[in-house]
Write a protein that binds this DNA or RNA. Sequence first.
DNA 1: GAATGTGAAATTTTTCACAGCA
DNA 2: TGCTGTGAAAAATTTCACATTC
Lengths: 213, 213
Amino acid sequence: MAYGYRIGSLPLTTVQRLPSYLRVVREMRRLGREVVSSARLGELLGLEAVQVRKDFGFIGISGMPKMGYQVEELVLAIEHCLNWNQVRDAVLVGVGHLGMALLGYEGFKAHGLDICAAFDIDPSLAGLVVHDTPVWHMDRLEPELRSLGARMAILTVSPDAAQEVALRLARAGIEGIWNFTGCPLDLPPGVIVQDQDIAIGLAVLSAKLSSRA
Amino acid sequence: MAYGYRIGSLPLTTVQRLPSYLRVVREMRRLGREVVSSARLGELLGLEAVQVRKDFGFIGISGMPKMGYQVEELVLAIEHCLNWNQVRDAVLVGVGHLGMALLGYEGFKAHGLDICAAFDIDPSLAGLVVHDTPVWHMDRLEPELRSLGARMAILTVSPDAAQEVALRLARAGIEGIWNFTGCPLDLPPGVIVQDQDIAIGLAVLSAKLSSRA
DNA sequence: GAATGTGAAATTTTTCACAGCA
DNA sequence: TGCTGTGAAAAATTTCACATTC
């Protein structure tokens, strides 16, 4: 039951830090800053400077001694690693409160994600356009997926339906599922599942608060 | 810039796995199962059996050789570790799409969380009751917090407002902030911040998909 | 001097190997 | 035999120490 410590040649922990680096260096670019030191980035993000340097080494970026790293180069390199420099189509399944919120989330553009269609079991939602995204009934899932060619799906259905819908997505050729249901999914190998379990963050915060009291 | 590897006596990684254990053992209890082996739990959650046993050792649970672990005992022990067996009040600040979705999320009850009030800068939201939760204008933040006595806040404001609002919460006596804004917060020591950055999950999934193509 | 870059050490986490028990 | 429990080993990650470069 091997673990996934690495993604390609990058340590998993490095990949997990890339979004926060990207946010900061994009903001610096916006402000016209051209270089930044690992110490400054570390200070802003609560990391050791040497860890920042190691991470940048992994993604193939060299800095200039005494100067720091070039902001523009960092932005491009991180976007490239994450494939966030080009638009990728995704579908969203389950237009409840959370699905609706994700459809309205402006930030996905900055991450290269375009939700091109949504699906729900509720017939009264079919035909609506929510935040510029058309909503289809679940009956239309397979045919629409065929014509859209999206590789990624965002799963925001209820826990009861999670496994069944995920299997339909996998059979329809979806390669990656971003799983917000909190249920572990059992899918054929080759389909990549990324669990986004909100309860983990709450658990860590709860435990920290408890241990202080 | 010391790291937080442990929460109290528990490894951070163990705490992060507790919610998924809890979900499964609660479901087993519902189905009337009285015992479960570490191997079965590992199979369901994609973990090594020995890791499950180590985790249960950390939270002080012993199993019975040949039998397994008592489901009821596991439920109670995990709930106790996370303090999810008693109701804790929280406030939510920022009633946009995401805040609205969290207000409507039924699952918080199962995690002992009760959102007793929400706040937003938009005057037209003030006075509304969203999913049983009253919404106040931001002007009422400090006085309402004083009377409510909530220790925890859920931060779902826009990135621009994140730091400023977080500081107000800290000054008003909030001890833990669950930060959904994606911005790093700089707060006085003693305030616990738990970042819930959705972009991390997307980054991992994006990188995995890229490295397969 | 002020920054990067990197091998080595320290720390943490996972996995192995196997003793012990019902 | 089937499962737990645990010390030891392995692997991964972070941190230290310091050489290097502009």
